[in-house]
Design a binder for these strands. Sequence first.
DNA 1: TAGCAAAGTTTCGTATTACGGAACTAACAA
DNA 2: TTGTTAGTTCCGTAATACGAAACTTTGCTA
Lengths: 273, 273
Amino acid sequence: MTTDAAGGRDLLERQLQLIELVARHPAGLSFSEIHSALGLPKATVHRLLASLSKADCINFSGSGSDDGDVAAGKGRRHYVLGGRIRRLLGSAVDPDQIVLLSQVVLHRLAEKFKETAFLSMLREDRVETVVMVTPAKDAHGFVNPGRVMPPHAAASAKAIFAFRSEHEWDRVLSGPLPALTDLTLTSPTLVKREYRSIKQVGIAYCREEIDRGLMAIAAPVHLPQIGVIYAVSIVAPSNRIREHDEELVEAALLEAANELSSIFSDKLGTDGK
Amino acid sequence: MTTDAAGGRDLLERQLQLIELVARHPAGLSFSEIHSALGLPKATVHRLLASLSKADCINFSGSGSDDGDVAAGKGRRHYVLGGRIRRLLGSAVDPDQIVLLSQVVLHRLAEKFKETAFLSMLREDRVETVVMVTPAKDAHGFVNPGRVMPPHAAASAKAIFAFRSEHEWDRVLSGPLPALTDLTLTSPTLVKREYRSIKQVGIAYCREEIDRGLMAIAAPVHLPQIGVIYAVSIVAPSNRIREHDEELVEAALLEAANELSSIFSDKLGTDGK
DNA sequence: TAGCAAAGTTTCGTATTACGGAACTAACAA
DNA sequence: TTGTTAGTTCCGTAATACGAAACTTTGCTA
């Protein structure tokens, strides 16, 4: 007959989930939408919302139907991402702003081929996927954001490392290079040869080297004064990619990457402040 | 002689401060830097770091010099922002970010026609120009960012107001409507008629109504559940625009505007998981 | 090599907060 | 009115956050 009350059961995790949920809905969510999405008791949701909005991580605005001027703030509230989180994301996380700008470019890629498009970035000697844009709303990609890409197999990782110093190659390839499929390059020498060839061509492939039946094409984003840290890529079943004509995909990826680096270098001259 | 131990004294605030601190230092911070920056007891800092990195809000990497494998991580660690926070940026889009996202879209417009492209936005009943992208680096546009556009003459202002409530029209057109050229519409009735026609067609023109010899074309950006707040536009000497074939410019502007609103609305439905 | 200081980690008793069922009130519908 | 749902507050319980102090590294100097 324990009332099953419990002290802090994993506050941070719940807070993050709530923030992530709200972040996904720019137009805002109602209390009950949040309630059912999180599947937590009403009282708990209420308390979470209260504490997060006190910290300006979440804001609520009154109804939101038609104008009415400033957010009134009674009755049905709409919860949106708070200024604190937005500020955090805008300024600090993304100093180059490439991550944000990539949204547009990836969106166009995804629409054009009806395939999933990705932005990956180099961070501490590892390449991880940061943004994923799917062509349809419910479609789900073959790579999840946050995943660390194997440097000897993934197209995105190859596209980035190919344009970095050979000194870095040794560091990155010093660990074990597992054979993820029978097509994976498992010897550092072979991988380096691949890197060199990619540096020549300017585009990287992963032909079923991670998953049988799965293929990826990636183009590096050259940032002046920074070098190559980002890559844009498309991942899809091999047969589907072949249907698209690889050259077209290559061209689109190169254009996307060039667009990003061109916008970036334009800003260097202008220098806002 | 109370040990002055205390339960949670404002966990969330401290967590945010820590995250913000780390976010401000992309190169990473050591334990003691954090310790002294926050001015909290060592044990507290330690616990904060532990819980935040368990949630992937903060990552630590072993010194960074040699080791060899996965961040082995004893001894001196370097703390950097975790993937979870970075990924948040990939999923979050809020109306304010349209300004940033527009860079890509405007860039493409400017390149395509070698003309200057603009993003304008509604702010407190006034439309002002926010972003300007010129085709060449040194070229300068005909409108400066920050300038407030006359609601009865500017293409951007017309494109936005046309899709707002008629109630708003009265407010906006209640002031004087100066005749900037001999082609300017100076009567509220005429302007409203123009608004209605724009709402039908979906695109707005300014044919030398502000400056003799200067023409602009604008398309509204429809944001679901928010309405029209932004417009993209191109401004150029009339003769140059005619050289481009107005229909092509219209199509490109509409595509650009649709791209922005489509990115925004994609995020709306994504309930993820 | 020992010896020491500073950096970083663990322990532990206490106090504070998080927890969520249940009881409430407010809004809308029939 | 009455019923139903959305949203809020209560409150006893239990789990976690707290930080001084003890402890274990690491790095430096002699």
